[in-house]
């Protein structure tokens, strides 16, 4: 599969055409907006996007303007996977019955971490279980940014948000980030991957793999939000890289149940280098930073063990 996909590693060979147009209303330094751009460079024009309510919906579709050069539908917050199920089923029936020409069309549903890990989880599970030929993309900026930086189940331990504020009796988010990829793997679907906006070629290759499989695929892409993370906008890409290098967000893929770490980090950097430029972590004590680092490293070790077991 991967040999035909290696061309995406050459930046000059990426399609020039911008199917996600500039001029949309995203904040300065918005990494999710880059996710949209890379996504359509990887998937091309024969793609239908089913968008959940959220940042990428509101910044791209203020009537009568639209940033989308592909067919795009937004219905509600929690149901982009369900809408995509319908689009896929509709196209399948129409093609089988000869009402529209037979043709490969990619159907992609997408939502942020809140729209995926919280309110959209049931619809995602249903769509994956039913086996629709579609891609589910979660762009994860680790809180409800569109409504004003409220915590989600994708918000990391220790982060201060507007609904998990640090205070005299609170150190911020007291729970651990939910793993969407592991939940997807439990559905025994052919392709699951994590990705990061800071590794664009890896992300695009994973999307192409997700597109190439027949059946459901899920890609969980890390996308820093300078506004919500309270950091300078020019750090968005660097933070995405540091998240991988500190095991805050490891990159891996699971092909038919086999794990492979796609960005190996033999020597993890101290978590502090990732946290220090982000206002959402500025209140953390050394003890809490140690606790967070230890928890992330335990999870990373468990992932490495799964990848090694998959090679046996």
């Amino acid at each position: 599969m991967s040999s035909e996909l290696t061309n995406v590693f050459a930046a000059k060979m990426l399609p020039q055409r911008e199917l996600f147009s500039p001029g949309h209303r995203a904040c300065q330094g918005c990494a999710p907006a880059l996710v949209m751009r890379y996504m359509l460079k990887a998937l091309g024009p024969d793609t239908i996007i089913c968008n959940s309510t959220g940042c990428m919906e509101i910044i791209s579709s203020s009537y009568p303007e639209s940033a989308w050069g592909v067919p795009w539908i937004h219905v509600a917050f929690e149901n982009s996977a369900a809408v995509a199920s319908g689009v896929e089923a509709g196209l399948k029936a129409l093609m089988r019955k000869g009402k529209i020409p037979q043709r490969r069309i990619t159907v992609l549903a997408q939502a942020g971490d809140g729209g995926s890990l919280d309110i959209g989880l049931q619809a995602i599970s249903g769509a994956l279980e039913r086996g629709h030929d579609m891609i589910y993309l979660c762009y994860d900026n680790e809180a409800y940014m569109n409504t004003g930086i409220q915590r989600s189940s994708g918000t990391p331990f220790g982060a201060s948000t507007t609904t998990s504020p640090a205070g005299a009796r609170s150190f911020g988010q007291s729970t651990w980030k939910k793993s969407l990829a592991e939940i997807a793997v439990a559905h025994h679907i052919p392709y699951v991957a994590t990705a990061s906006v800071s590794y664009p070629f890896d992300f695009m290759e994973k999307l192409k793999k997700a597109d190439a499989v027949r059946g459901p695929a899920l890609v969980h892409v890390f996308a820093p939000c300078p506004t919500g993370w309270r950091c300078p906008s020019e750090l968005a890409i660097r933070l995405g890289r540091l998240a991988v290098q500190t095991a805050a967000f490891p990159l891996y893929e699971v092909v038919n149940g086999k794990y492979r770490i796609t960005q190996n980090v033999p020597h993890l950097k101290p978590l502090r280098v990732y946290l220090e430029s982000q206002g959402r972590f500025r209140h953390l004590t050394d003890d809490l930073i140690d606790e967070l680092q230890q928890g992330l490293r335990e999870r990373y070790a468990a992932l490495v063990a799964k990848a090694e077991a998959s090679q046996e």
């Binding site: 239908i48 089913c50 539908i73 369900a82 809408v83 199920s85 319908g86 896929e88 509709g90 029936a93």
Partner: peptide, 9 residues
Amino acid sequence: STCCGSVAA
């Protein structure tokens, strides 16, 4: 939601 998607398709 699925009906919305299929009829839009």
